[in-house]
């Protein structure tokens, strides 16, 4: 997972039975309840910005030095909606490419460019 993120890749789940694509990951397909959803590369094509915010306040010390922080809610071409960092501050309706990156604590996070 981390290696994939370092390479900018991230995955969503696709149901092996009905093809439903979902994020965040869960233990079953939310459409048909089939077990063991498969992982596949996401955001192969650009997604669309649904909404944005710029944070001027954070509940965590590690983010405070980085404020203001721009975020966006993006609908992936595959269907699911992801929250991601959006440093370029895109407008609603803009097409953006979502990529994974490693944050300061080594966790994979999503970023729209």
């Amino acid at each position: 997972m981390k290696a994939a993120a370092a390479a900018g890749l991230f995955a969503v789940q696709r149901c092996r039975v009905c093809g439903h694509v979902q994020y965040p990951p869960r233990a079953c397909c939310a459409a048909c309840l089939a077990d063991d959803p498969a992982w596949e590369a996401a955001a192969v094509r650009p997604g669309t910005v649904l909404a944005r915010t710029v944070l001027h306040h954070s509940h965590e010390e590690m983010f405070r030095a980085r404020l203001p922080l721009a975020l966006a809610l993006v609908r992936l071409a595959e269907g699911p909606v992801v929250l991601c960092f959006a440093p370029d501050r895109p407008a609603i309706g803009n097409a953006v490419q979502v990529r994974a990156a490693l944050d300061a604590t080594g966790h994979a996070v999503l970023e729209a460019r």
Partner: peptide
């Protein structure tokens, strides 16, 4: 929540302010 821990909180820990900001913007 497990979803928020995985897919919301790591994005700046803005809490409900951030979630409602997105809804308000839309």
């Amino acid at each position: 929540s497990s979803f928020s821990r995985a897919a919301v909180y790591p994005y700046g820990a803005g809490g409900a302010n951030a979630s409602f900001a997105l809804i308000t913007d839309a």
